[in-house]
């Protein structure tokens, strides 16, 4: 029996309506999510990738009870988010991050104390727990300084500390490392991994492909409000043609057909690159190599550049998002 999902959505749609213009007579309608089906299992780090405006934050807010879906169903930890958000809230954590969302004129410790009380942490446990999360995110020394004196990275850590303060079973992280320096970003990723070791399930949205590749067991790619792919990183690589990517530039356009029929080619993408085309070939096996491409094109190409590399998540992401956009 598969474990009960931590998150399960069926056909989630979300439409935003707003009014603008003189006397707000002009009505605009934006469909942010267009039928999202998703399943997240316990103990995994599930990544949601997508370009700006794809609907990542909207979906995160729906799942974390800050927004209601226009239609469709979402169950988180077995609770219907639209019907009983109050029952769900103590069991989940949300880190939206950014410069806002904190009381800047008071200290980090006081911020945490306030939210600890709103989350109902027992008074006997509260201060110990606050110290524990401050230690965990590395803010102990700055804990009694006003938040307005904090750097962006420190604020991000404080957001994280607040998100895990009440020991949620599920933590939503909306772009947790955005704007962080490499060291802080690495520390944050380390913290995320340690939370998973503690049994927390993580729902992560990010723009950073290497971060998703490093952290997530499974991923979904959201584009224009729809999930365009969902799988493990290896599965997504297969989806776009395989583990190996060979890029070629400097050949004649008429020669594309010769490359198309090379053994092992799973997928071919072309794009204009200056006066000529750049070709991206994907393969799952070991038959396609830079050498086989060079051999197929012959030696009469002084500008020919051929590069072989491993397919990375960024390739997958760009392929799928561009395909969807097209």
């Amino acid at each position: 029996m598969p474990p009960d999902p931590v998150i399960e959505t069926r056909g989630i749609r979300r439409v935003f309506e707003s009014r603008k213009g003189f006397l707000f007579t002009e009505k605009t309608r934006t469909e942010a999510l267009r039928g999202v089906d998703l399943r997240v299992d316990p103990g995994e780090i599930f990544g949601l990738l997508g370009p700006n405006g794809a609907g990542k934050t909207t979906l995160t807010k729906i799942l974390s009870t800050l927004l209601l879906p226009t239609s469709g169903e979402a169950h988180v930890l077995g609770i219907d988010v639209a019907r009983d958000p109050q029952a769900l809230r103590p069991r989940i954590g949300l880190v939206l991050g950014g410069e806002r969302g904190l009381y800047n004129r008071i200290s980090a410790r006081e911020n945490l104390r306030y939210f600890a009380d709103l989350f109902g942490l027992p008074a006997s446990l509260r201060d110990r727990r606050i110290q524990e999360v401050l230690d965990r995110v590395g803010l102990t020394e700055a804990a009694d300084r006003r938040v307005e004196e904090y750097s962006r990275g420190m604020k991000q850590k404080l957001h994280l500390a607040r998100g895990i303060l009440h020991r949620p079973e599920l933590l939503f992280l909306d772009e947790p490392t955005i704007g962080l320096d490499p060291k802080s970003a690495r520390e944050t990723r380390k913290l995320v991994r340690s939370l998973v070791s503690d049994g927390v399930t993580i729902f992560l949205t990010t723009h950073y492909m290497f971060e998703a590749e490093e952290l997530c067991q499974r991923l979904a790619i959201l584009s224009k409000g729809k999930i365009v792919a969902r799988d493990t990183v290896a599965g997504l690589r297969r989806l776009v043609g395989g583990d190996t990517t060979v890029e070629a530039y400097g050949f004649e356009d008429s020669e594309i057909d010769r490359l198309r029929h090379l053994p092992g080619v799973g997928r071919i993408l072309t794009e204009e690159f200056g006066p000529r085309l750049r070709l991206t070939l994907r393969s799952s096996g070991s038959e396609l190599t830079a050498e086989s491409v060079r051999a197929a094109l012959g030696s009469a190409h002084p500008d020919l550049m051929v590069r072989e590399r491993r397919t990375v998540l960024e390739d997958v992401y760009l392929d799928l998002v561009e395909e969807e956009a097209a």
Binding site: R89, L94, L96, R100, G101, L102, F115, L118, F119, G120
Partner: peptide
């Protein structure tokens, strides 16, 4: 303005008590 309305409403306490 502070952006604290969202995290406050996301807490289990009904906002009226705040």
């Amino acid at each position: 303005v502070f952006g604290t309305l969202e995290p406050t409403l996301q807490a289990p306490t009904p906002y009226v008590y705040v």
